[in-house]
Design a protein around this nucleic acid. Sequence first.
DNA 1: TGGATGATGGCCT
DNA 2: GGCCATCATCCAA
Length: 213
Amino acid sequence: MKKILNGELTNESSLKAVPLTIDFFKQPTLDLAKSLLGCLLVKETDEGVTSGFIIETEAYTGPEDQAAHSYNNRRTARTEIMFAEPGHIYTYVMHTHCLVNIVSGPKDKPEAVLIRAIEPFSGIELMKKRRGITDLKNLTNGPGKLTKAMGISMADYGRSVCEPPLYICTGIQPAGISQGKRIGIDNSGEARDYPWRFWETDNPFVSRHRKRI
DNA sequence: TGGATGATGGCCT
DNA sequence: GGCCATCATCCAA
């Protein structure tokens, strides 16, 4: 609809996106959270391929961030992958929904970027079928919604985000980037007010629930 | 082994 | 804006 990319992506029927390489994910977590805006998230399954532009992220900056699962170097079966090299996929379940993060920071520094919303690009009918709705605006405008729409699950935990079935490709630069407080972390002391949520300014697919600026 | 706890979403008023 | 379904995960015991 809105975006024509790089000469690589043209339209829904000719999606030939090339995954970003590992070096892209080695930048500092706050930078990565911003750099990921506009990139294309792609998931391949037996049912088909779905993709969308990342338009909202949150940074979780490791042991010093009280809102992070890895706060104080808390190391459990769930957070183990956060201690690995950047570019791994960290999925976890909360309230019956699966949320997807990209591990960042150097090995043994447990940081991650949460993908909170995407703008649907390809496989839209499949995403509607999985979500059981037809309204495009509500298809992927939340961290639990987008994983259900794209078929992202705990089966993706620990995978590399540089190769199928779940990977990220170059997209286009967002027209503008807005920044604000992270969502749903009110029980995190001072960290609740850190402005580490980023989104593409005015993009209609940004999550609206529990809005905080 | 069980109780507490959510980086949510959907429905209600 | 408020309420709550629902379950993987963690940790105390």
